[in-house]
């Protein structure tokens, strides 16, 4: 089974190498530390179309490709680099309720060697990748705060939650920290259970190994219109202990898109089958 998969992947890689596009990030003036869809910033960048296909390696995977291409523009200002990513998705999905998933996009860079990156499928042991992962759901966290149960289910009426009393009476010393014990993910310190900054920064050494970085420096903003999403992900060129990019040098970048409305999440995603060359112009 595994052998067959690999053969398929090699075959497809060859096919896709014929169609590969290089992304050139021109230098622009302007503040990229705030994500902006403003045309003036993006006017000089050439839009490239990057081909995606259903993630073929790790099971479970999508039965068919939900997002066949993502349109990419990139610019930098000598200290930050920003990507503008657009793809078609007629259904806006922001997750929240049971069985709902969020639309999302990710940009991936090699960490150790910009010239010879690890496997594009999320890196390998001792040769990690640095991923910037935006989710519509995380954007809500950033803009409106992490949603409470009342926000997700406005009509639900629970009697009470543990240690939450209208009048605490003599029970002083009831703190949110004590109440957290009843929320297992939060009690365990899982970053998924706390408000996100709009975009996650992640290190990975292969499928299933992703772990989020605590101090997120990247910023992102997405907007959905009838035909789909346009998301800007902006990051410093140099990230401590992560991906280092240099003006005037070439490197590689990878992309992934999730359509929440098609139940895509985790390993169910459309991905680039090989690294896309990225030139950071002087």
């Amino acid at each position: 089974m595994k052998f067959l998969d690999r053969k398929l992947v090699i075959g497809l890689s060859v096919f896709y190498s014929l169609n590969v596009t290089a992304i050139v990030a021109p230098s622009v003036k302007g503040d990229l530390s705030k994500p902006s869809l403003d045309e003036t910033i993006w006017a000089t960048a050439k839009e490239e179309t990057v081909t995606l296909m259903a993630q073929p390696m790790a099971i479970p995977r999508p039965a068919e490709t939900a997002t066949a291409q993502v349109k990419v523009k990139a610019v930098h200002n000598d200290s930050w680099i920003a990507f503008r990513l657009s793809w078609e998705d007629k259904e806006k999905s922001e997750a929240g309720k049971l069985g709902e998933f969020s639309d999302a996009v990710a940009v991936q860079f090699p960490v150790k060697d910009n010239k010879s990156p690890p496997p594009v499928f999320m890196g390998m042991k001792d040769n990690p990748v640095h991923i910037f992962h935006w989710r519509a759901q995380y954007q809500i966290d950033k803009e409106k705060g992490k949603r409470e149960m009342k926000d997700i289910y406005p009509n639900m009426n629970p009697d009470m939650y543990p240690m939450e009393f209208k009048d605490e009476g003599h029970l002083t010393g009831l703190t949110d920290e004590k109440r957290e014990i009843f929320s297992h993910g939060r009690a365990a310190g899982n970053p998924q259970s706390y408000a996100k900054a709009g975009v996650d920064e992640i290190f990975a050494e292969g499928f299933g190994t992703s772990s989020v970085i605590k101090n997120v420096e990247a910023v992102a903003h997405g907007e959905w219109q009838k035909s789909g999403w346009t998301v800007v992900i902006s990051r410093p060129l140099v990230r401590e202990e992560g991906s280092h990019l240099k003006v005037g040098e070439d490197t590689f970048v990878g992309f992934a898109v999730w359509q929440g409305g098609k139940d895509e999440v985790g390993s169910r995603k459309s991905v680039t089958m090989q690294w896309t060359p990225l030139s950071i112009a002087k």
């Binding site: 479970p60 309720k97 069985g99 149960m149 997700i152 289910y153």
Partner: peptide
Amino acid sequence: YGECVRACPYKKSMYNPYTRV
């Protein structure tokens, strides 16, 4: 990701929308 919620035929894995795990 809820893959366990999908996969368990007895549906004894459950998603918590508050902790998001």
